[in-house]
Amino acid sequence: MRYVAPAREAVDASVFASPPLSQWSQYLAWLCDAAWPDVDALNARWPVQARERFVAQTRALLDDGLHYEARIAQTGHIATRESNWHDLFNALIWLRYPQVKRALNAQQVAQIAIMGPKQRSRPQCALTHFDEAGAIVIVRDRSLMSLWDSHDWHGLFWRERRAWEDGRIEAAVFGHALLEHALTAGKLLVAKALVFQGDAGSTMVQAVQACALAIGEGRVLRDPLELRPLPLSGIPGWHRDNTQERFHHHAACYQPLRAGRTYPVATPLTVA
């Protein structure tokens, strides 16, 4: 069933006090004020050197006949529906992670050139899944990967609960649809993750840079099956019920590993 976000005035304000939405506090007025931000307000947050601009999605804009991704590549114009949660969160992702969004756009345009505008390749599906529901994850403790590989969710989120608090594993939400879903209090969230293997000195900034480079070079997101499910609702503080062990045995966001399912190894993250 297609998710329908609550009306702006109906959003429970508590959702902005816990992850993932609490991680976007610099945009809190845009999320909480009675009035929606317009494209001028969004554009005011771009660095002066940025090529892209948000443009209201109107009939006149769409009459240019360009594909959404091609328009961005050719003109820098990001078609944005006003007064719309999905497109507002997409704008926030562009502003925080422009290098990753540009890499995704370049790969999408390359695939459209091969497939045409009406068919989708496996790489296009992977790119879209990550764009909508992605997370960038650093694992600084290799032992956690075996738990994740086997979908040992009780192990990854309960027995190793401290790992999420002491920095041995860290996740940053990239998918704008995930942020939109988080508007519903208590909703169980599952991301589609790209994973980077680091050490104690590696940072999320480095992981984001590595992610953009890997996407841009076509080394990742060639197939949707590359993406690892990550039940975000298991992370401490991300769901109101996950302080109880029973949550980690029975929560619907935890799915068993399908027979024969494997995942790529984490991409090594080199610390400069």
Rank of each mutant, 00 (worst) to 15 (best):
H176C: 04
E82P: 01
Q99V: 08
P236A: 06
A193R: 04
A41E: 12
H248M: 00
G198M: 06
A185D: 11
I93E: 02
A60K: 15
A13E: 15
E160W: 06
A200K: 14
Q197Y: 06
E226M: 11
E165N: 06
V265R: 15
Q209Y: 05
E226P: 07
A200F: 06
Q107I: 01
R96K: 13
P229E: 05
C125A: 15
E9C: 11
A200M: 12
E165T: 11
A182M: 02
R59G: 15
V109A: 03
F16T: 01
L213F: 12
G260V: 01
M115N: 14
A10W: 04
G198A: 05
W158F: 01
K187I: 13
I215C: 10
D223G: 07
Q197M: 15
D152T: 05
A34N: 13
W148T: 03
Q124C: 05
L156Y: 03
L42D: 01
Q108I: 08
E245I: 01
A266P: 10
A35G: 02
C253P: 02
G134Q: 10
A135T: 05
H67I: 11
I169P: 07
W148I: 05
R102K: 08
P231V: 02
S22Q: 10
Y68R: 10
D141Y: 05
A171S: 12
F54K: 02
Q244G: 05
R246Y: 07
N90L: 00
Q57W: 12
E217D: 12
N105D: 08
L92M: 05
D241N: 09
G186E: 04
V11K: 11
E52L: 03
L61R: 01
R120K: 13
D64S: 07
P20S: 08
M1Y: 14
F196G: 03
M204R: 11
A35V: 12
P6M: 01
G134P: 07
A210S: 15
E165K: 13
P6Q: 00
G216I: 04
A126D: 08
T267I: 15
H176K: 03
E245F: 03
L28E: 14
G186Q: 00
L127A: 03
R53M: 07
A214Q: 10
P229C: 07
D223E: 14
D63H: 11
F174G: 00
Y27K: 08
A70H: 12
